[in-house]
């Protein structure tokens, strides 16, 4: 009861019964995508997809026309986008389009025309370097302001076709998501209200007044209490690993392994995102000598991009030399 009282959330209902798309529904893709309530999730996702995927199917590729070849190296993948190793990797230019399939859509003003992608692997880790022009660095995530951000997406199962925007029901995609605000936390420590309002004072927040009972004080931080990665105070990595099975389903992975780093220089973001090539059944297994596909998305926080308001580049083939 105590945690319900301040948790702003109810305990999950008994899983299992198929749900219809409804005003009362809370999506439970965390379980669905991770396979623990696949049946319930799948039934529900179908309802959603009937509405949302109609246009989506038109955008499925039939054949990949562009390919990016990862460079195999014998050392650790450099996290620093300025590292010399990245210089000799061939870049593939990826034209960006605005997300227009589902509302909220992106307004067509001030679009970023393209991004470049470089990929490197060393047999155990794979690294992506995405670079795009963005004159202002937006690393605050506060009232009415949004952060710059980039995502790299791979199918969990590389065989066959798969919807490019967030995958589709039964065909999950694996997403590496970097946010400038998380990069800021990695570098400058936990965010506070002073990041935005330097003179703000909160003299008696719960953790001060209830110093003797930190667990009780936590109840005023319901997102933190609920384990939402958005509310995570400390960050070692600015990259989050997620899984999605269609629009609106993106869910943080239980297991977080990704790493990376982003730098904004001379009006360009250069962001490295690194993850292990081995994974469990919900994560892609990337074997040297095999091929898969990759897509990217970027958000210009200064323009108000977030969530579905984004630009993306369609699938390109990804070759992983042995």
């Amino acid at each position: 009861m105590a945690d319900r009282a301040v948790g702003h959330r109810q305990p999950q209902g008994a899983g299992g019964e198929p749900q219809k798309r409804s005003i009362f529904n809370r999506r439970t893709f965390a379980q669905a995508a991770l396979g623990t309530a696949a049946a319930a999730g799948a039934a529900y996702l179908t309802g959603w997809s009937a509405v949302r995927h109609a246009e989506h199917d038109d955008h499925k590729d039939t054949e990949l026309t562009q390919h990016v070849v990862a460079k195999k190296i014998g050392a650790a993948i450099p996290r620093d986008p300025a590292a010399a190793e990245w210089k000799d990797v061939a870049a593939v230019e990826m034209p960006l389009m605005q997300q227009f399939m589902v509302a909220p859509r992106l307004q067509p003003d001030g679009l970023i025309p393209n991004a470049t992608l470089k990929v490197m692997h060393n047999g155990s880790e794979i690294g992506f370097l995405v670079s795009w022009g963005d004159l202002g660095s937006n690393d605050l995530e506060v009232v009415g302001r949004f952060r710059d951000s980039v995502a790299v997406q791979l199918p969990v199962d590389p065989s066959g076709q798969i919807g490019v925007v967030m995958g589709q029901p039964g065909r999950p995609v694996h997403i590496l998501h970097w946010r400038a605000s998380w990069q800021r936390t990695v570098q400058k420590g936990p965010r506070t209200v002073k990041d935005m309002y330097p003179n703000a004072v909160n003299d008696f927040p719960p953790e001060t007044l209830l110093k003797a009972s930190p667990e009780v004080a936590k109840q005023w931080y319901p997102a933190l209490l609920a384990g939402n990665s958005m509310a995570q105070r400390e960050r070692k990595s600015p990259v989050e690993e997620l899984v999605a099975e269609g629009y609106g389903t993106i869910t943080s992975h239980a297991e977080q392994r990704a790493d990376g780093s982003g730098v904004n220089t001379a009006g360009r973001w250069n962001v490295v995102l690194v993850m292990p090539m081995s994974g469990n059944q919900q994560q892609p297994v990337l074997k040297p000598g095999s091929s898969t596909r990759v897509a990217i998305a970027v958000w210009d926080g200064g323009k108000g991009d977030r969530g579905a308001r984004k630009q993306f580049a369609g699938w390109v083939g990804l070759e992983l030399p042995s």
Binding site: G7, H8, R27, P104, V143, G227, N228, G248, I250
Partner: peptide, 26 residues
């Protein structure tokens, strides 16, 4: 866009699911 807000069937109270919200401010 991600159905992180729901209305409780038992009393109609509208809540933001603090586990699902990703801060889009929509």
């Amino acid at each position: 866009p991600r159905q992180a807000i729901y209305k409780r069937p038992e009393d109609g109270i509208v809540l933001v699911d603090q586990a699902r919200c990703r801060g889009y401010q929509e």
